[in-house]
Amino acid sequence: MVTAVRRALAIAAAALLPAAALAAGTASAATTPKSFPAKFAAPYLELSNSTVGDLAADKSASGVNHYTLAFLIPKSGCTPQWEAGGYSVGTFKSQISSLQSGGGDVIISFGGAEGGELALTCTSATSLQAAYANVVNTYNVHRLDFDIEGSPLDNTASIQRRDTALAALQKADPSVQVDFTLPVDPSGLESNALNLLKDAKAKGVKVSTVNIMTMDFGDGENALNDAEAAAKATAKQLASLYGVSSAQAWALLGLTPIAGKNDDNENFTQANAKTLLSFAQSNGVSVLAFWEVDSYDKKVGYAYSKIFKGIG
């Protein structure tokens, strides 16, 4: 996620539309698994050996059933690992399975601001597809998030390779959903983020949510006002990109602030969270998330989780 001023002014999806929402010539969206409602909260959890043990307790204490687990980054080549601790794919499977058995589910997120992006180090689209499929099959997950920010947003080769791999993955397994988490300004997505979505659409990737990082807008800025402005501008961009109505474009949006003090002295308060929830509900936003459960929300009694779960 963009921590450390968009974790250096950037932190954590495109052809994202329900089939009925797509105009002729655009890609249709994958069927939503039963565990993912049409509208839901999925806050980020930075997964590690010290946080995974609290996953069931987090769910019980907050009432939130879905989490976005961050981040899978490159270990080497086409082999991903969990960023915090360098744990291999397969680690934490029992805890994730337990959450799923209890009625919850997870989105697994690749990338982030600091650890690197697998499509940069894995230079074969076929091998990249296999790496993604291994994560899906190992954890029995059907929704992947790609937090793309910073220099990877300008790396055309990796963007095209990722989209080729994702389109092939979804063709082989239509149950797989794809989200993109992208940095945003109050004026909307910048050109590199829009170009990423355009390539995904052209390659036939079926995207479920474009999740915008409504955070780190600037020292002393109003985090809530900027989040709402960014959402309004992005909804217009998505309507134009996909040729859909305003209501359909809003349904493609996810909103992700930082829960509390941002990296640039903005403060997204619990009162702000309540207002953003009302804003999301009135405009038809599908997903609310925030950064991050263990470091930010747990110490305030899961206040942000309890607020955002109202989206469902």
Rank of each mutant, 00 (worst) to 15 (best):
A165Y: 05
V184T: 14
A119M: 13
A113L: 05
A193E: 14
C122I: 13
G115N: 05
N134G: 03
A167M: 07
A167I: 02
V176Q: 01
G116M: 08
N137G: 11
D179L: 08
R161K: 07
S127I: 08
R143E: 15
I159Y: 01
A193M: 02
P174M: 00
L189C: 07
L197P: 05
I159T: 14
R162K: 14
A193I: 02
S124A: 09
L118A: 11
Q177S: 11
G188D: 09
V135A: 08
Q129P: 00
T164G: 01
Q177D: 10
L169M: 03
I148T: 11
L189V: 07
R143D: 12
Y139G: 09
P186G: 08
S124R: 04
Y139T: 07
Q177L: 15
Y132V: 09
D185K: 13
L196N: 12
D163L: 00
V135D: 02
N140P: 06
L189M: 12
V176A: 03
D179S: 07
T156R: 15
L166Y: 06
L196M: 14
A165L: 04
G112M: 04
L182G: 01
V135H: 08
L153I: 02
P174Y: 01
N192A: 15
V136P: 02
P174L: 00
N155K: 13
T126E: 11
P186L: 07
A165E: 01
L189S: 06
R143M: 12
L144K: 08
E117L: 01
L169A: 03
T138A: 06
D185T: 14
P186W: 06
D179P: 10
L118D: 08
R162M: 14
V136W: 00
N134E: 11
T164Q: 15
A157C: 02
C122T: 11
A119R: 11
D154K: 09
L144T: 04
V135Q: 06
A167N: 13
S175P: 06
N140A: 12
V184S: 07
F146I: 08
A168Y: 04
A130I: 01
T181N: 10
S191D: 15
A193H: 03
S124E: 09
A130Y: 00
L189F: 09
Q129H: 04
H142V: 03
N192R: 11
D185V: 00
N195K: 12
R161Y: 06
S151P: 06
P152H: 02
G112E: 10
A168K: 10
L182F: 04
